[in-house]
């Protein structure tokens, strides 16, 4: 089932001196349970697409059609943005509190999520007591708590060191798949995109247009860290690298 359709989406940033065209004529169709990654050179406007879908920024032209009634989006950022004065449970309840949905059921749901993903003994801990990977998991559960239909992941692992990054992307991937969520991830890391996504969309330099789309098909597809060892992995890497390389200069 299709969830979200983006048609001819464009966004201009206006400054006193000039009009900067960030993205131009982006078309995208997101199906349920799909994991789509957007890659592209830094500053090309990848995050802008997420901001517009998430309603944080206005589009200049084009259409965004939600195919499901009351479609809810959940955001996850590069910084975990956990509130240091709230404990893990309260941080996870933040979205529900703001939307006035702090019901017993929802609280129970959050607690099951925490338990399922190995954080239940940290419910009363404060963010500073957690490792970087655990913090990112808490951030994901905070987003999942409001039961979004689509997860928007904006470079969610960029702030982590290399090793944590690989284990956390495994964790996050597992959670997203188990909770049967649809995800749209922005990343500048080609490896990350190929290892996690079903579909990788390569964007060009500004003004961003869709340069290429790759369906990632691997035999025995499993966790992101295992996918990295797959035979086909390097093939995709080289293809995408070429797409990007050309525009980097």
């Amino acid at each position: 089932m299709e969830l979200l359709e983006i048609k001819e989406l464009s966004k201009n940033y206006l400054t006193k001196k000039q009009v900067i065209c960030a993205i131009k004529n982006i078309n995208l169709l997101i199906k349920e349970n799909q994991f789509i990654a957007l890659v592209g050179p830094s500053g090309c406007g990848k995050s802008t697409i997420l901001s517009i879908i998430g309603g944080l920024e206005k589009k200049s032209s084009g259409q965004i059609n939600f195919m499901k009634k009351n479609l809810k989006v959940g955001y996850m950022f590069q910084e975990d943005a956990l509130f240091p004065w709230l404990n893990v449970l309260d941080n996870c309840m933040l979205g529900l509190k703001i939307q006035n949905k702090e019901t017993k059921e929802n609280k129970k749901y959050v607690k099951t999520l925490l338990k399922k993903y190995g954080l239940s003994s940290f419910e009363k801990s404060y963010p500073k007591e957690l490792s970087g990977g655990m913090r990112q998991r808490v951030a994901l559960i905070r987003t999942l708590a409001t039961k979004p239909d689509i997860l928007l992941l904006d470079e969610p692992f960029s702030a982590l060191d290399y090793q944590t990054r690989i284990t956390v992307s495994d964790d996050v991937f597992k959670i997203i798949k188990q909770e049967k969520k649809t995800a749209l991830m922005v990343s500048h890391d080609i490896n990350e995109a190929i290892s996690m996504a079903d579909k990788v969309i390569v964007l060009s330099n500004r003004p961003s247009i869709i340069k290429n789309v790759y369906e990632i098909k691997m035999e025995n597809k499993s966790t992101p860290s295992e996918n990295r060892k797959n035979k086909k992995f390097n093939e995709y890497y080289n293809l995408i690298w070429k797409d990007l390389d050309h525009y980097e200069s």
């Binding site: 309603g55 944080l56 955001y75 950022f77 943005a81 509130f83 933040l94 509190k97 703001i98």
Partner: peptide, 21 residues
């Protein structure tokens, strides 16, 4: 912190909630 405000906005928080939370 800008990300915190963005986060609250993504939960559809109003300005008063952003200030208090």
């Amino acid at each position: 912190n800008k990300t915190s405000i963005k986060l609250l906005k993504s939960f559809n928080a109003n300005k008063f909630q952003i200030f208090i939370k």
